[in-house]
Each structure stands twice: as structure tokens, then as C-alpha cells.
Nucleic acid binder design. Sequence first.
DNA 1: ATGGTCGCGCAGCGA
Length: 260
Amino acid sequence: MRIATWNVNSLKARMPRVEEWLAYAEPDVVCLQETKLADSAFPGLAFGALGYEAAHHGEGRWNGVAILSRVGLDDVTDGFDDDGEPDPEARLLWATCGGVRLASVYVPNGRALEHEQYDYKLSWLERLRANLSRVHDPAASLLIGGDFNIAPTDDDVWDPARFVGATHTSDAERAALAALLDWGLADTFRGYHSEPGLFSWWDYRAGNFHKRQGMRIDLLLATAPLADSVTFALIDRQARKGKLPSDHAPVLIDIDIDPS
DNA sequence: ATGGTCGCGCAGCGA
């Protein structure tokens, strides 16, 4: 079973690249982020023609998450499963695909350490962690794929010195991510590839992609039953090349389980 | 060169 995550930075702008990528990467399940679409504008029929069921949780101009699956798509819910106020932004979507409960997440960027969006980012991550403790079991199959807007370690940043005092590498953000891992999730890509300098996002500006100046912020986190069954992991740099790319590359893993 | 590019939507913000 091949599971991928990809921040497409506008599905409307990216649809030709997404269709091309589905055809050659042949994922079974895809978590998409930053669709930037209202639900009414989501191209579900186009995905259906390619053999994928699809669910979308959008708000329009910003954010928006989706799940595509060719191994079944059931029990779709959006947002947090708790007693709190609904998240005002469309950043979380759940579904069961091929017997795996999974989420597509678009963690808030944070903007700057002193910005209120940074506090939103930290509280958003804590709320996700609390949701795991409340509803889920780390001994069961669970996957959370998405743009976490956090580089887990300095090995995941092209120049850590440049991010001192900025978001994505701060101690508090890394602690919030570590709390998710401590609950019982593993960074599956990192479990398969240990070397530094493997990135999933590169700023559009200044030829950063071609200078290999990026960060690894797109993660596929999974509980042990899935993480222990990973047979392949890849960041598809090919999808970041060429005409009208997203600024993120897809990340994918193969898991040796039978979809059920 | 002390910026650089996208997407949205039509100015300037967010990433």
C-alpha cells in the first residue's frame, strides 16, 4: 500500500501536475494540503475518472485539505474530535482507507515567533496530540500525513543558522512535534533514510530548489504497526521540477500490508 | 544584486 502526502499550493493551479503525478507514482492514498478551494469547487469528478475516491475539507482562498484513495474511503470527518470550538481554518481531515485510519493535516505556519499565529500553531499541535490520546490507540494502525511546517531536527534544514529566531525550527515547535511522536507515532521517512539534506519544501525564490536549499517539513507519521512495515520511502523531487510546480514535493511510503 | 517567486485576485498579503 503506497501512501503519500503533498502540499499542492492551490489544487486549481496544480491539477495538471497532480494528475500527471498520480499516473506515474500510482499511490493508493494521497493526503493533499493547501487546496485553496471551497468544497463546491473541488474536482471530485476528475479524481473519480482517475480511479480515486476523494474527500475535501476546504474554506476557499486559503488552507484546505483532501484525501484521495483507490482502496476505499470511509468514515470521513473533518476537524478535531473533542468538545472544543470548531477550528476556524480548514486544516484537518480524517478517513479510513484500506483499513488504515488516517489524517491529512495542514499545520499552521506560525508566521513569526512573536505572532499570534505562532501561538495558534502550538495550540493546534497540542490539540491534535490531545485528540490522539482521547480517541486513538498507539497500538492500532494510524497515519497522519501532511505539511507540519516544522523541521524535526537541524538535519532537516539546509542552513539551521538562518532559522534561529524564526519559525519551523524553534524548540517549542519541535517539542510539540515530539509530543506527537512520544504518544506513539514514528517519522516514517526518517526511519528509512537517515542522511541529512533531504528536503520536501524549497522557497520559489532565488533558485533555492536547484541550490538544494530547503527543509523537510512534510511528514508521514505512523504508529508502530504501520511504521514497522515500511518497505520504501521517497521524496519525489521530480515533481518539484519543470513547469508550474508546487513549492513542495510529494513524500511517499510503501507499507507491506494488504488493504482491507 | 542585501532581493529574488508564487497564488489569489486585483492590492497587497501569506507562504
